[in-house]
Simulated assay, not measured.
Amino acid sequence: MDLKGKRVLITGGSSGIGLAIAHAMMSKGAHVVITGRNGERLTRATKALVVNGSDVAAVRADVATADGRARSLEECLAVLGGLDILVNNAGGVRAGRLESTTEDEIRAMVEVDLVAPILLTQAALPHLRASGDGLIVNVASGIALIGAPFYATYAGVKGGLARFSEALRRELKGEGIHVLTLYPGATDTPMMQSSKAGPELGFTREPAEAVAEALIEGIGADAFEVIRGGEIRAKMIATNRDNPAAIDERFLIIKPALEEAVRGHSAL
């Protein structure tokens, strides 16, 4: 897909991977609307994106709510006159043992990481069909491919989003809408600031810009998925499929240190 002139809605676009994707798409000539819950971040993001030389619009909205989803889509259509690409990027995480995670935290992850992208996609489909060359990008996580201890709910909802993407891609095949799933690894974003897990625990962080660049390449190649983490991640995925007990043992060794490092990891 050629991004020049494409009309794009990016949820969670005020920082991190969403903001990097906005930069990358605008540099290819796309017209972008970003959403976010934090007004100050949206203002900073808009100013940073305008420096790129293109206009950008921002919608302050929480896509985990029906009103936020409706407003995001309505304002996007009003500004852009249509929609070619939807990027479901908004997300939240709360790490820790399942029995230490509150029901509100669990429900928040389910709502923002899984329910919101499904319902926003449903609402956007008529407009993506009208485009004739539509694209849906769902931002999952490497944890959706290899479940990590202390991320049980997050792995569950991101894994659900990944399978939603796969099923929807097949449902829409031949109908002018493609679906691509992005699997970032540990990324240097505000969402990761409260995590103390580093390279020694397998959380080597890469810049959000690198994730966005890989996504742009994937879009250009009409890829089904973009998985970050290189050869190391690919080997772990293969091992997790063929010999999951080996991954269990690897996590068992680092489990105490990992639990301590992610105890305070929260971005909801």
Rank of each mutant, 00 (worst) to 15 (best):
L258K: 09
N38A: 08
I146M: 01
N38F: 10
Y151V: 02
D62I: 13
G16K: 06
L215M: 11
L161Q: 12
E231C: 11
T11A: 06
A45R: 04
M192T: 13
Y151P: 00
E200V: 07
H127I: 07
V33I: 14
E213V: 08
A130P: 00
P117S: 03
R71K: 15
H31P: 03
G202T: 12
A155F: 00
D104P: 05
E260V: 15
A214M: 07
E171F: 05
L114C: 03
R228N: 13
K6C: 08
I10K: 07
A66W: 10
C76R: 00
I17A: 09
E225P: 06
M25A: 09
S131N: 01
E75Y: 02
P199E: 11
M191V: 14
G229V: 01
S100A: 10
A30D: 12
G176V: 04
H178K: 08
E217G: 11
A130H: 02
A186N: 00
A261V: 15
R263H: 14
E206A: 10
R7L: 14
A30Y: 03
P244T: 00
R241K: 14
N89L: 01
E259N: 13
R60I: 15
S266W: 05
A267M: 10
V157R: 05
F150R: 06
E74F: 09
Q122D: 07
G229F: 01
T43G: 06
A208S: 11
E209S: 14
A144K: 01
A58T: 12
A78Q: 14
L83S: 02
G264N: 07
F203R: 08
S141K: 06
F164N: 04
A238M: 11
V211H: 04
E200Y: 05
R60N: 06
E260Q: 15
G36C: 04
G156M: 04
V33F: 07
E217K: 14
N38V: 05
L73C: 03
R7Y: 05
R94G: 00
G229E: 06
T43H: 06
R60K: 14
P126W: 01
S54L: 11
E74M: 09
A167D: 15
D104T: 13
K6S: 04
V59P: 02
A246D: 11
V179G: 02
D55F: 05
D242H: 10
K28E: 15
G156R: 01
I247H: 01
I85F: 02
L161R: 11
F203L: 02
E260P: 09
L73V: 00
R170Y: 13
K4Y: 08
L258H: 14
T65W: 08
M191S: 10
R37A: 03
A197M: 03
A45K: 10
K235Q: 15
T187F: 05
R241V: 15
T43Y: 00
E175D: 09
L119E: 15
V115A: 13
I118D: 06
V137Q: 10
D188V: 01
A246Q: 12
I106K: 04
R60L: 07
L19Y: 07
E217H: 10
T11L: 04
R170E: 15
L77N: 00
K28F: 02
D113R: 05
E75M: 12
N243G: 04
A66P: 12
A116C: 13
I232N: 03
L83Q: 02
G156C: 11
A197D: 09
H23W: 09
V226H: 04
G159I: 09
L77V: 03
L49N: 14
G29F: 03
R71Q: 15
V110N: 03
E249F: 13
R205S: 02
F150V: 08
D248Y: 09
